[in-house]
Amino acid sequence: MSEQKTVRFIVTRQDSPDASPYTEEFEIPHRENMNVISALMEIRRNPVTVDGKDSAPVVWDMNCLEEVCGACSMVINGKPRQSCTALVDQLDQPIRLEPMKTFPVVRDLVVDRSRMFDSLKKVKAWIPIDGTYDLGPGPRMAENKRQWAYELSKCMTCGVCLEACPNVNSKSDFIGPAPVSQVRLFNAHPTGEMNREDRLNALMGDGGLSNCGNSQNCVQACPKGIPLTTSIAALNRDMTMQSFKNFFGSDKL
């Protein structure tokens, strides 16, 4: 009988938000087509390290398992990405798993991405359609524009772009790339456009887009291929115009 093929993992662990991180190494039997999540499940089944130490199961986050929710994002071999679509056979071993440390670590590989959701609230990344009475149908969106907007709507708030950004860190309150692109999406919508100025002014506030230093890592890192740096430059242009409007006033609303 041939020897069983195995996979090695080095996992950065942290027992609580304030605890200091440490690493543990695990070795599990290899299965065909396994992804990082199925490997983590295997570790959970028998959480014994390579040194034979009994450990607690590794904690991680997941939901959709098809790269649309963003919950399972972590740093895999130095690259932030979704663990559900990270195939073990395509990774160099030992596979290193770390949490995205740009965010507060909750436990092991689970991080708290609240700051992203707070940012989305801050920039009003939605389209208000509720009234006290039926407002009727909104204006139609041209099909080619809808297709264009669909690309921007693929953002899953996974946080990979913030993790890759040198200006998003504990020292700065920079909002990061993802919410900026969402402003572009909702400002482009014929109904969403009605709140355009609110969104721009929010982006111009402290911790806003002006903190961007144009390292352009975000656009390279985004798993959804969202044109983040184009969104950033486009919003920079809109903010320039908006700041003139705010200062000088305008004949247009």
Binding site: P166, N167, N169, S172, S215
Partner: peptide
């Protein structure tokens, strides 16, 4: 002030623009 707010990560992300960011 701006320079010390950033945390250079060119080792992880060795892209051209990121290197320019660091060199700037």
């Amino acid at each position: 002030y701006i320079a010390f707010l950033g945390k250079s990560n060119t080792r992880r992300y060795g892209f051209f623009r990121n290197i320019m960011f660091m060199l700037q």
